[in-house]
Design a protein around this nucleic acid. Structure first.
Length: 402
DNA sequence: AGTCCACAGGAAGGGCAGGCGA
DNA sequence: TCGCCTGCCCTTCCTGTGGACT
C-alpha cells in the first residue's frame, strides 16, 4: 500500500533521529567557530582588513586555491567577525558577498551592479535601463554613506569570462568616483592561472595582496571531518574506518573538503533511511555512487531539447559499438535525431559549443585530438555506468518524445 | 618542408523576448 | 504604444591547429 505524503512527513517528524544531531554542520555552507588548519590564512586576511575598523580602505585581496580548500569559508568567517567588531565601534564596515557564478545575479555587468545596488538598499529594474545609469545608481547609493564596503566576488574568473576584464578595471578604480564611501574588493577563484590572463593594470590593482589556499591533505581532512562529526552526529554512531575513507576519497580529488563533507553527510542519510544504527564503509560507497548519480540526472533533466537530442545521438552511437566517436559522426547522427523529433538542427558551430557544455558538466568526455591529414576533431565518449546510462535514456526519451 | 584535412573556437552581429520610461 | 535597452540563443565568417601524408 502506498503511504500518503502526509504520513511520510509525520513519520519523519515523530521519528527519533539516531544519526544526525545537526545536519547543517555537515554541509559546506556551515561556518564553524574555528576552522582547522587555516590559522595562517585567517591571520593574514584579518590583518589586511583590519584598517577598515578605523575607517581606512584595506588593500584589495586576490584569493586562489582549488575547490574545497576553505577560501570562501575563511573569507566569510573573517568578514563576519569584522562586521561584528565594526558594529561595536563608530566606523561602519559593510560586507557584500556575491557569487559570480549565480545566474540571474551576476552573469552580466548590468545584473551585478543591480544586485549590488539592491543589497545596498536601492532597487533597480531587472532590465531596461542603460548600464551607464545603473553605474550612476550604484555610485550614488554607495556614496550616500561613509561606510567602508568590502565586496567579495566569489568565482571572479567566471565574471571575466562573461564580461571581460574591462569591467574589473572599472571596478578596481571605483574609489576615484566616490567622495565619502570606500570600497575594497576580495576576488576569489579556483582557477590558479586566472591572474595571468588579466590585463596587467587590473592584475596589479586587484591583487594588492595575494593569498594562496593550499589543498588539504588526508590527515587535515580527517581533522575537519572529526570536528564536524562532533557537531553534527550523535555520539558513537560512526564506524572508525568511515572518516579515513571519506578523507582519502576527497584527498584524491585535490584535497576537497566539500567533497569529504558531502560523502559523510550522504552516507549518514543513507544509513538513516535504512534504519541502521551506525554509518559504515558500505554507506560511504553508496554515497559515492549516489552523489555522482544525482548530479548527472539533475543536469540531464534540465538540458534544453537541442542538447538532449545531441546527447541521445552520442548514446546511440556508443550503443552501436562505435569507438572513438568524433564530432562529425555525432553531427550526422544528431541531424537524423532532429528529423525524428521534428527539431530544426543547429549549425555545427553551435553543436561544437553544446559538446563543450556537456563535457564541462561531466556528462561526456571530449578530448581534442589531431588525426594528421584527416583533420583535427574531438574524440567523445561517455564515462557513465550502464545504470546511469539507462536512466539517462529514459529521461531523454520522454523529453524528446521519441 | 609543404600541404591538407576536419574541425576548434573567437568575433561579430542578427533576431527575438522581456522590461523600462516617456 | 513606441523606442530603447539588455540578455540570450543562434548563425556566419574567419583564423588557427596538430600531425599524417606527399
Amino acid at each position: 500500500m502506498v503511504r500518503s505524503i502526509q504520513t511520510i512527513f509525520q513519520e519523519f517528524i515523530e521519528k527519533k533521529t539516531l544519526i544526525f544531531k545537526d545536519r547543517n554542520a555537515l554541509t559546506s555552507d556551515f561556518t564553524p567557530d574555528n576552522i582547522p588548519h587555516r590559522d595562517k590564512e585567517i591571520n593574514t586576511m584579518a590583518s589586511i582588513l583590519a584598517p577598515s575598523l578605523k575607517g581606512g580602505k584595506p588593500s584589495n585581496i586576490f584569493i586562489y586555491g582549488m575547490t574545497g580548500t576553505g577560501k570562501t569559508l575563511v573569507t566569510k568567517y573573517v568578514c563576519s567577525e569584522l562586521e561584528r567588531m565594526s558594529n561595536q565601534g563608530t566606523n561602519q564596515v559593510k560586507i557584500i558577498y556575491i557569487n559570480c557564478k549565480m545566474k540571474k545575479t551576476a552573469d552580466t555587468e548590468y545584473r551585478l551592479l543591480a544586485e549590488l545596488s539592491r543589497i545596498l538598499g536601492q532597487e533597480v529594474p531587472i532590465t531596461g535601463l542603460p548600464t551607464e545609469q545603473v553605474y550612476k545608481i550604484f555610485f550614488n547609493v554607495l556614496d550616500s554613506t561613509n561606510w567602508v564596503v568590502i565586496i567579495i566576488l566569489d568565482e571572479i574568473d567566471s565574471l571575466v569570462v562573461k564580461m571581460g576584464d574591462d569591467f574589473l578595471y572599472n571596478f578596481t578604480r571605483i574609489n576615484g568616483e566616490l567622495k565619502k564611501a570606500k570600497v575594497s574588493i576580495i576576488g576569489i577563484t579556483n582557477d590558479l592561472h586566472f591572474i595571468d590572463i588579466l590585463d596587467p593594470r587590473v592584475k596589479s590593482s586587484l591583487s594588492e595582496e595575494e593569498l594562496l589556499f593550499p589543498p588539504y591533505n588526508a590527515i587535515e581532512l580527517q581533522d575537519i571531518l572529526k570536528q564536524r562529526v562532533l557537531l553534527g552526529l550523535n555520539p558513537n554512531i560512526i564506524s572508525e574506518e568511515v572518516i579515513p575513507k571519506c578523507a582519502a576519497l576527497a584527498a584524491q580529488e585535490h584535497g576537497d573538503a566539500r567533497r569529504a563533507l558531502d560523502l559523510l553527510r550522504v552516507a549518514g542519510e543513507i544509513s538513516e533511511r535504512q534504519n541502521e544504527l551506525k554509518i559504515t564503509e558500505k554507506h560511504v560507497d553508496f554515497a559515492l555512487e549516489k552523489i555522482d548519480y544525482d548530479r548527472i540526472m539533475e543536469s540531464v533533466k534540465s538540458l534544453p531539447k537541442q542538447t538532449k537530442s545531441l546527447l541521445w545521438s552520442v548514446i546511440g552511437l556508443e550503443e552501436k559499438g562505435e569507438k572513438d566517436i568524433q564530432t562529425g559522426d555525432i553531427y550526422n547522427t544528431y541531424e537524423e535525431t532532429c528529423k525524428q523529433c521534428a527539431l530544426h538542427p543547429l549549425t555545427q558551430r553551435r553543436v561544437s559549443d553544446l559538446i563543450s557544455e556537456l563535457d564541462m558538466m561531466g556528462i561526456i568526455n571530449a578530448r581534442v585530438i589531431s588525426l594528421g591529414r584527416y583533420g583535427r576533431t574531438r574524440e567523445i565518449n561517455m564515462n557513465t555506468s550502464p545504470k546511469i546510462k539507462d536512466k539517462m535514456k529514459e529521461i531523454l526519451k520522454s523529453g524528446l518524445m521519441i
